[in-house]
Structures are given as structure tokens and as C-alpha cells.
Amino acid sequence: MRFDFWTFSLQVINFVVLLFILKGLLYKPVKEILEKRRELSRKMLEEAEAVKGDALRMKEAREKEMKSIQDAKAQLIEKAAQEAEEKKRELLIDAQKNADALIEKERALFAAEKKRAEEEIEDTAVCTAATFASSLLKDISSLELHKSIWQNLYREADEIAKGISGTFSHGPSVPPTNAMELAVRTAWPIGRTELQKFMETLQRVVPGIRLSAMEIADKDLIAGVSIKAGDKVYDFSLAGQIEAFASNLRSGREKIKISGGPGQKNADDQ
């Protein structure tokens, strides 16, 4: 091992030469490549960051949009719920009203039906009572009863005569002459004499009117008579009394007189 100046010097020179060679062949170009690559990486990173930023902004915008949609959805749901609740309440009110109206209608219907049924029952009862009374009176009626009713007729003679007179004064069917034939329906035979006597009684009240009578037998009257003078009927029969009683029952009349004054009614009513 010894120091060699030329070797030492040449190695120094070799190093320096190699240093400059490598500067041109290695360091400078590789440095440029590395810097370019770093620049490229930096640009790509910046682009990636920009894209990431855009993506984040888009994400935020989308999240805001989604939030607004969610809010709108919640508002819509709440509004729809409120409207549904309101509608439900209205429907319930309408339904309640309808139900009340229906109930009221049904009640009215029921009341009407009840009234009709009651009337039917009443009519049936009246009819039954009338039928029963007719049957009963038919069983107990007799000539004596008939005569008794006939005798009572004289007390009504004035009223009948006035009725006949009124027919001639105001009646719509005024006979062309002052004469009238009375149709006397009787349950029992009256007899010509008795009928003549009654007619004379009437004639005395209305002397200006020439009266005549035609006796018609009618067992349905049970007892008593029914006199038709013009368009008026003077019913003094038990059947007429029963019918009047039934009519009074139907019309709610309380005054029922089986043996009272004569029932007077128009011929049209019969």
C-alpha cells in the first residue's frame, strides 16, 4: 500500500468527469421526468380534488334537494292528514245528519204507520163495535121499539118540515112544482094510516108544499125509519144511529147519542 499521485489525481478527475457526465445523462433528464411526473400527479390530484369537490357539492345539493323533498313530503303528508281529518269530520257530521234525518224520517214513518195502524185498529174496532151493535140490536129490536122510534119522530116533524121548506127556498134542486115525494124507508111496516098521519103533521107545518110519501121496507135499518126529502136524508133508524156513532168514534167525537135527535145528512154523503 503506497500513495500514487497519478492514481489519486486521475481518480479525482474521473469522479469530476463522471459527475458532469451524469449531470447531463442522468440527473437533469431524470429530474425533469420526475418533476413532470410530479406535476402530472399534482394536476391529476387537483383534478381529482376538483372532481371530489364537485361531487361533494353535488352531494350537498342533492342532500339539500332531498331534504327539501322530504320537507315538502312531510308537509304534504301533514296537509293530507289534516284534509283527511277535516273530510272525516265533515263526513261524520254529514253521516250524523243523514242518520238523524233518517232516524227522524223513520220515526215519522213509524209514527205515521203507528197512527195508520191505530186508525186501522180503531176502524176495525169501530166496525166490530158497529157490527156487534147491529147484531145485538137486530136481536133485541122489535116492533115496539120501532113504534117507539116512530112516535118520537113526531117531535122532529117541525124540523123535518123546515128542512123541506128550506129545500124549496134555497136548495139547488128545487122541484119545478111545489110538491115533493118523500121516500120513507122503514125497518118494520108503518101502516098506511100511520104514514098518512105523519104526512099530515108535516103538511101542517108546510102547507104550501104538497107532500106525498112512498114507504119502502128496509130490514137493514133494524128499527126506525129513514126519510129522504129531496137531497136530504133524515135518518131515525137504529142502523143510522149506529153508523153515526161509528162516525163519531172515527172523528173523535165524544158526544154520542144513540137515542138522541135525528142524524141529518146529505144524500151525497150516503
Binding site: F3, D4, F8, Q11, F15, V16
Partner: peptide, 15 residues
């Protein structure tokens, strides 16, 4: 081996 020569290593050390 150049570095097995003291002149080379000495040159590098001086550098």
C-alpha cells in the same frame, strides 16, 4: 476493485 486501492478511497475522501 478500485476501492480496494487506498488512492481511490483517499481521492473520494478528499472530494
Amino acid at each position: 476493485t478500485p476501492t480496494a486501492d487506498i488512492n481511490t478511497t483517499f481521492a473520494f475522501a478528499v472530494l
